[in-house]
């Protein structure tokens, strides 16, 4: 009777010391984003971020009617940030397919293999009739509406994943005509991530385009710019695209409001990062001339 008791005590002590040793070690490795805020969060712990990622990808899968790469497929073949973010115009009519009820999943070459690549063997070829193997996008409001619940769940599970808010806002604004809901989710995102320049920029766009409130928009853009500048160089290099868009929006607003000196300043900054500096220079010359 004594021995099991001793073993239990020993095991408990061992577990306790293991935890006290592991906790700080783990904390060093994991970014402090996963702080449990809700009961669900506490219960799920870090795994909820995994679930959040899962839900996020689920939304993307729904966008493509089930056609989505798995762990084994070459994801690089799928354009990066494929789920429409604020930067790309994903909603072009270019890839609008015939309605799927008539469309059979088919491995025909002319339709494009996407990330799947050409079939490797007869089994592969046959198998492609049995799952969505063609690149299509959702069309219609009702169907786009089905992405949003997934994204909301993703945001609830991992409030520090910025991409979720941007994508949700994009769909709400562009496809579902719910700008207020978009504003709402962006505000939530900002509350959870006060340092995020991306969310501030999106908020600015919302105010500028949906609320027609250039003053609030300008304030938000400027705040976003300051946050961007506070970032380390690594981030700044990686996401110069947001910076360019930010400066472009600020320049346009300044130009519209007739503050051309300020506008010129922004255009000069834009010229340095723009992929098409010649056009910006033309624009600058025009502005200087009109002054």
């Amino acid at each position: 009777m004594r021995t099991p008791l001793l073993v239990m005590v020993f095991l408990l002590t061992f577990c306790f010391s293991l935890v006290t040793w592991l906790k700080p070690a783990l904390a060093r490795h994991l970014p402090d984003t996963a702080r449990a805020e809700s009961l669900l969060g506490t219960a799920l712990g870090d795994s909820r971020r995994l679930f959040a990622t899962h839900c996020f990808f689920k939304a993307d899968r729904y966008l493509h009617s089930g056609f989505y790469p798995t762990l084994f497929d070459d994801r690089t073949l799928l354009a990066e940030k494929h789920l429409a973010g604020p930067h790309d115009d994903h909603d072009d009519a270019a890839d609008n397919p015939a309605h799927r009820r008539q469309a059979q999943p088919t491995p025909d070459a002319e339709l494009g293999y996407g990330f799947l690549g050409p079939p490797r063997d007869w089994l592969d070829r046959l198998g492609r009739y049995f799952f969505p193997s063609r690149h299509t996008h959702l069309e219609g409001k009702a169907e786009a509406g089905e992405l949003v619940p997934w994204l909301r769940v993703a945001a609830a599970l991992d409030p520090h994943r910025i991409e979720t808010y941007l994508v949700t806002a994009y769909w709400l604004r562009r496809h579902l005509e719910q700008p207020e809901a978009a504003l709402q989710i962006l505000r939530e995102g900002w509350r959870a991530n006060p340092e995020s320049y991306e969310i501030l920029f999106e908020l600015g766009r919302s105010f500028e385009e949906d609320r027609q409130d250039p003053v609030r928009a300008r304030n938000l853009y400027e705040l976003s710019l300051r946050k961007w500048e506070k970032r380390q160089d690594g981030v700044r290099e990686a996401d110069s695209q947001t910076y360019a868009l930010l400066v472009a929006h600020l320049a346009r607003l300044a130009e519209q409001e007739g503050r051309s000196a300020e506008a010129i300043g922004y255009f000069e900054r834009l010229e340095k990062v723009s992929p098409d500096p010649a056009r910006i220079r033309e624009r600058l010359d025009e502005l200087r001339r009109s002054r």
Binding site: Y62, S65, G66, R100, R101, Q102, A103, Q104, P105, L123, L126, G127, Y129, F130, F131, P132
Partner: peptide
């Protein structure tokens, strides 16, 4: 997995030939 056509039903694809 060949026989798993759930995605086709869920996402309203036409039946397999």
């Amino acid at each position: 997995e060949l026989f798993d056509v759930r995605d086709l039903i869920v996402h309203d694809w036409a039946p397999v030939p």
